[in-house]
Amino acid sequence: MKILVPVKRVASLDDEFELRDDGRDVDPDFCEFDLNEFDEYALEAAVQIKEAAPEGSVEVVVLTIGPDDADDVLRKALAKGADRAIRVDDAGLEEADRVAIARVIAKVAENEEPGLVLCGAQSADQGNAQTGMSVAALLGWTRAAVVSKLDFAPGAATAQVERELEGGLVECLDVETPAVLTIQLGINTPRYASLRSIKQANAKPIECLTPHDVGLSDAEIGAAGALSRVRRVFVPERGRGEIIAGTPSQQAARLLEIISEVNG
């Protein structure tokens, strides 16, 4: 059985940054890129399932959609226990929104026929919390979001999961498989890759495909497959909250007021 883990290369911004000339995104020079933290947990969950199963019976496949720089996050995932890596190149994917990205992932899933797809609950940069569940919808598979515990034996007809709801409430449920789950932080403790496994990962090949290679038609690629469009990005006028000025004793007095206002 395969487990497919779509992973995203997310950007974190420097404290000050500039927008792209067209005003529709941030200038990437100001971005630090890394593997989406949620995906570390999704990957760890997949690797733990593999390690609990008979040797060789489960293959963990990681997938990213992005430019060749995004190979870094695939190598990181390989170093942390993924067996195979696929990158679908982003040429032609301009204007792709979550749903358009999900179309690519769903096609790869159709080709790979995994028993589970584990996505991150959301991405650390855009945080739409849409992609994984869109993949499930496109595949017509069972889905559950924000999974904080997962018990699954490869081949079983159901998985036992817990979903973490608002306020720390937990729902325990059985879901039919194959399923797409989105994974919450804290479900496990993701491993750090050892230096040796990093070196081994650097030697592994990455399968590089185009959206057409995976079987998407033009009507599904990029803007054509999207349900939304970014019109403009702007830096909100808000910066910082109320600055409490004055001497320390005045500042402390105001702080005590705030404490009693908030705490009632």
Binding site: R98, G127, N128, A129, A137, R143, E164, E166, L227, S228
Partner: peptide, 24 residues
């Protein structure tokens, strides 16, 4: 609402009915 329940509902409805879609 943008909540844990709608995470697993909204995308399927938007895709299924071809609605414009944004979250949070």
């Amino acid at each position: 609402p943008h909540g844990v329940d709608s995470f697993s509902l909204a995308p399927a409805v938007a895709i299924g009915e071809g609605l414009g879609f944004a979250t949070d």
